[in-house]
């Protein structure tokens, strides 16, 4: 579970992006919805420890991320994975890209290979294992970025517009994978403009407006007014 307690954040030389957000990302799937620039991405990045809030607390499984010592903070950060809305792939093959997070964590080769294989299989990427990641389409890159996140088996998975570049089949596949993860106890947060996706997969929805939580509850209830 990730808790944001009265979190405030301003980008350098920018307006206040979050103005006292109180939000809990618990087991299951939470959709963050709201207009562009409302603060959804900032919430995900703060939850992942990528941005430090100006005020307020970020609790990951009950531990304060920013008052923890560096070793503990790294451990907490490693339980959360954030996937950016513009999928980043690096030079090298798809397999190497998917293995990246496991290599960072020093996972032994054999275990890493198994993790990579499973993640690629889940997202239908096995055929592309030895393809150069840079030659992939935007949709395939998005799947690679997601597979890279899944390979490290995070307890908390934060996704920014995960289906933005996907066709119908892959969108359904991703939705299925996210539901499976949620059933296995992973807390998933999805920032999305895809109303149908939010309705289809979410257990909860949170409406973010102007840097604040404007509403939260069941997805149909929150999304009804949008």
């Amino acid at each position: 579970m990730i808790e944001l307690l009265d979190v405030r954040y301003s980008y350098p030389r920018g307006a206040e992006a979050l103005r006292g957000v109180a939000l809990t990302i618990r087991e299951g799937i939470t959709s963050l919805v709201g207009p562009n620039g409302s603060g959804k991405t900032t919430i995900l990045k703060i939850s992942a420890g990528l941005l430090r809030p100006a005020a307020g607390q970020v609790l990951v499984d009950g531990s304060d991320l920013w008052s923890a010592d560096p070793e503990e903070r790294l451990r907490l950060r490693r339980s959360v994975v954030y996937v950016h809305e513009s999928p980043v792939v690096m030079r090298g093959t798809v397999e190497e890209n998917v293995a990246f997070g496991l290599r960072l964590r020093g996972v032994p080769d054999e275990e890493a290979r198994e993790g990579v294989r499973e993640a690629m299989e889940m997202l239908g990427l096995s055929q592309l294992a030895s393809a150069s990641a840079r030659t992939l389409s935007a949709g395939q890159r998005q799947l690679v970025a997601l597979a890279r996140a899944l390979a490290v088996s995070p307890r908390h998975l934060l996704l920014d517009e995960p289906t933005a570049n996907l066709d119908r089949e892959n969108r359904r596949r991703v939705a299925r994978v996210l539901r499976t993860l949620a059933r296995e106890g992973v807390s998933v947060a999805v920032a999305t403009h895809d109303r149908l996706l939010a309705l289809e997969i979410s257990d909860r929805a949170v409406l973010i407006e102007d840097g604040l939580v404007a509403a939260e509850g069941g997805p149909s209830e929150v999304l009804e007014g949008l």
């Binding site: 980043v88 960072l104 970025a145």
Partner: peptide, 15 residues
């Protein structure tokens, strides 16, 4: 892009 992606996957600053 790469810095944020690596940090988001649990990299240390050095990694």
């Amino acid at each position: 892009v790469v810095w944020e992606m690596a940090m988001a996957l649990g990299a240390t600053e050095r990694q």
